[in-house]
Design a protein around this nucleic acid. Structure first.
Lengths: 240, 240
DNA sequence: CGGCAGTTTGAAAGGCCTCAACGGGGGTGG
DNA sequence: CCACCCCCGTTGAGGCCTTTCAAACTGCCG
């Protein structure tokens, strides 16, 4: 329960372009370093924060992979997102000063802890940071719109295809392969995110394999025909 | 296409407590009036903004009722929310300087136009406003988490029950009845929001009526047993 | 080497969708 | 002011997709 912490600086972080605004002056960059208080390591399976805990900071993921999930009183729960390096986590806590979901590390991870008071203070002075914060929150809202579209109107194959395409696209933006990926989450977690049961996820993977669209070996996935995946997402049966 | 506009002030708006921060000084309140440039009327069926249009302003709903919806290239679309008086609309546009969804008035409406540049400028000076903006965006993120939970893990009855409870709760907070409401949207729009077909929505309404949980006459709904609705939402069949 | 979590696959059931027809109410135009 | 029309809502029947329940398999880790 005593989180490991390390002191550091943003200004020479190679992920800066992912989580920080561009085009800052030397002086502003230096001020940004004041935002990140410490880093914190989270072991695989550990939680960065939990539903109900006081909100104090946003977290920028440096390494590792997280899921966030919400739960109802009756035990049901729903994965609301998967987050990777350079993405910001914890925005849900701002409104009520408490986190409203759990953030769980799916592999050993390290995050930059950014006390929200610091962020607000500095973004009152640095216009670019202020706008950047607004954009990050807006981006999250738009992302969730996309998930609602997926959950509300797509069939199992479309959901999984969209999921895989989204994942490789984000990994590719981080310098990884455009066609190969390692899933950090279980079939059950994928299913929860996509509104499907784990068996349906598994079956849909098998179907993709049969069709020669992907290769799957455990959590290793190779996309053989990205065009086919895109077609599946955009197919939509019988429009009238 | 020439929107009707009216000049006005926030400081004596009776919805202020819904869309503006509390505990401001006289002087700060006066500054807030600078934010709202004009008001704008939107007729039933008209759009406040459309996907792809340049983003310049947020909108605070003064009167009326809106839906927001996103669409895919292949024509499918998804209602992402219903908004009523005092709620803020347009947050999706910040990230890309373009709106990414449509906002359609479901009844004649009037909104306060708040140019986002003004908001950012003033919130650099008024701490309470800055935090308020952050909270509004965070609230929207949390709301969408709830919708994802609904779409990802609930059955038709649970979805509709949750929908009705949410609607009356928000209406009640605005001084309307706790048990009676008039739906401003069609069954199809409800279905789109809930990830169901309109026939399923209709059938589920009928089922609720049979069970004596609600009375339905067209779009007029009277909740006879709110407890039963809450039970339906929290039921969740067979936990193991 | 065993145990276990995670995955795959099968078979049957069930819930929601599709297609279709009918009914009703409100708006519009004569 | 009335009549018509069209959109909206309701209901039925049948089918399909996903879920449920079950069993077997695999790879990893202690």
């Amino acid at each position: 329960m005593t989180p490991q912490t390390i002191k550091v600086a943003c200004s020479n972080c190679n992920l800066r372009e992912l989580c920080m605004p561009l085009g800052l002056s030397e002086e502003q960059l230096k001020r940004l370093d004041e935002i990140v208080a410490v880093r914190r390591k989270v072991k695989r399976g550990g939680t960065l924060f939990r539903n109900g805990e006081p909100f104090t900071s946003l977290f920028a993921i440096r390494t590792g992979f997280f899921k966030t999930c919400v739960a109802t009183e009756d035990g049901r729960d729903q994965v609301t997102g998967f987050q990777m390096a350079g993405e910001i986590i914890g925005l849900d806590g701002i409104v009520s000063d408490r986190h409203t979901c759990d953030a769980v590390a799916l592999e050993d991870a390290e995050v930059c802890v950014m006390p929200f008071d610091n962020i607000e203070e500095l973004s009152r002075e640095v216009k670019a940071l202020q706008h950047h914060v607004h954009k990050i929150m807006s981006r999250e809202i738009v992302r969730e719109h996309g998930v609602m579209l997926l959950l509300g109107s797509m069939r199992a194959e479309e959901r999984l295809a969209a999921f895989l395409l989204n994942l490789v696209q984000r990994l590719h933006a981080r310098g990884f392969s455009q066609s190969e990926l390692v899933l950090r989450m279980t079939r059950e977690e994928i299913g929860s995110y996509l509104g499907l049961k784990l068996e349906t996820v598994s079956r849909t993977f098998s179907k993709f394999v049969e069709e020669g669209v992907v290769e799957v070996k455990q959590r290793h996935v190779r996309i053989l025909d990205a065009g086919a995946l895109r077609n599946i997402v955009n197919s939509q049966q019988a429009c009238h």
